[in-house]
Design a protein around this nucleic acid. Sequence first.
DNA 1: CTGAATGCAAAGCCTTTGCATACGG
DNA 2: CCGTATGCAAAGGCTTTGCATTCAG
Lengths: 131, 131
Amino acid sequence: MRTTIQRKVILEQLQTHVDHPGADTIYSEVRQVLPRISLGTVYRNLDVLANKGIIQRLEVGGDHAHFDPNPEIHPHFFCTRCRRVSDLKWKNGQSPAWTDIIEAESLEGLVIDGGSLVLEGVCSDCSAKDK
Amino acid sequence: MRTTIQRKVILEQLQTHVDHPGADTIYSEVRQVLPRISLGTVYRNLDVLANKGIIQRLEVGGDHAHFDPNPEIHPHFFCTRCRRVSDLKWKNGQSPAWTDIIEAESLEGLVIDGGSLVLEGVCSDCSAKDK
DNA sequence: CTGAATGCAAAGCCTTTGCATACGG
DNA sequence: CCGTATGCAAAGGCTTTGCATTCAG
């Protein structure tokens, strides 16, 4: 993997986020540093970084992909108001065994490579705006 | 909600599936019964049915939406080979309390309306093809 | 009758891709 | 130098939408 300035800035920009933005957000932010960067380059790099296991691509919310600078599998929260994705934490610091939650019979014959747990609702910022 | 023949056939067709197809699959199947139905009508009806809580729209796999005739929240399995979505079952027949799995502190201030648990890997059909 | 639903086609969005050019190692 | 990465623009795939027409209640 070649170290280009674009790749470096994209990764650093993503790492400044506590939420998990889409490619478009990263694009407009990175453009303030590299005005000539293209959206295609942002997509290609986020893809490369995710495939290398340096970041994580999240399929949440349905409209567009979200990117998480932390590649470890952990639960997420999706706010249906502001459509932002944020982190949750496993109880006791580690992912539960799936067999503790899911009926063994329904898992028969399957090879499990990963999983995702996403809760959805309204975040505290959006709840506050109701008042 | 008006009962049109299109809506009826779309729902019945979805209910014949044990997997959770996309709108395109439903479209081509329903067209064998109603050759003049449009893809737009399929999308609109799946949307109406999901909003009424009669079916469920799943955001899984990233490429397109999947529809589940069962509106109850339950875990799913996504096969990365054939890209099909199938059902899993909660252990003991019911969803675990999220607080049993997720650290309470990270849930603070959030209003939780729902959740989704998706495991991914290779289904038994696809594993069998490896041999 | 009257508004909700349909068919058709166009438009929208996010994402990917082809190609010539630039550049990192 | 060589092959990866970029910029640009076009194309792709899924989904939504505008509009005139049809149809359920």
